[in-house]
Amino acid sequence: MQTVRDLKLYLVLISEPYEHLNDQPWETDNTSKAVIWSCGKLPFQTIVNNKSTGFIAASVDGIHIYSCYALPSLSIVEFTDFLDKLTEDAKQHHSVAIAGDFNSWAVDWGSNQTNARGKALLKAFTTIDVVLLNYGDTPTYIKGDASSIVDLTFVSSCFTRRNSDWKMMDIFTASDHNAILWEISCDQKRTAK
């Protein structure tokens, strides 16, 4: 909570939280593993009461924000079903931001190889108008000698690179995942952080 205050964040998307903040504007998917926390000046306009596993969505300042967590234990069929539900919902909205831990690997976002889940994610996201904000090959997940890039951020193409900023933070998170800070804006006005 102190980091959120120090960085003056509007929203926080969390995958697999250690604890839940029941006294905060905090929404989860049905497993409580994908979270959106409204912690600033931008309240939720609408919330998708998601009965599915893997994502929660809320509309904030005209942008439909998705927090995702794809369990690593999902079969490829279950993972594809999760992606189908996510993209079907995202197709209904003009401005979207989709972020989370997808537990997928693809050379497109800096992995050494593309696995079946990475292929499925790439194929599913061709059906919606989004671009990947991740850049570089610095791992988003590090545990001992193991590392990978599994935490991904996609936004509608209307949020071009000149209107967005994405970076991994060098801060303590008590997690084996790095914190990622991203900002998007329309017409030079910052709208989500």
Rank of each mutant, 00 (worst) to 15 (best):
Q2I: 14
L13W: 06
L13M: 13
I14S: 05
D23Q: 10
T31G: 08
S32N: 11
K33E: 11
I36H: 01
S38V: 03
K41M: 08
I47G: 05
V48D: 04
N50D: 05
K51L: 08
K51C: 07
S52E: 09
S59W: 00
G62R: 09
I63Q: 04
I63W: 04
H64I: 01
Y66N: 03
C68T: 09
L71G: 04
P72Q: 15
L74T: 06
S75K: 08
V77D: 13
E78M: 06
T80A: 15
H93Y: 15
H94V: 03
H94Y: 10
S95Q: 08
A97Q: 02
A99R: 03
G100N: 03
F102N: 00
S104K: 05
S104T: 10
W105S: 04
S111W: 02
S111L: 04
Q113R: 13
T114V: 13
R117Q: 12
G118L: 07
L132G: 03
G136F: 13
D137P: 06
Y141T: 11
Y141L: 13
A146G: 04
V155W: 00
S157L: 04
S157D: 03
S157P: 01
F159Q: 00
N163H: 12
N163T: 09
M168I: 06
M169P: 03
T173P: 06
A174G: 15
A174K: 15
S175L: 14
S175C: 13
D176H: 11
H177R: 10
I184E: 00
C186F: 14
K189N: 15
R190F: 06
T191R: 14
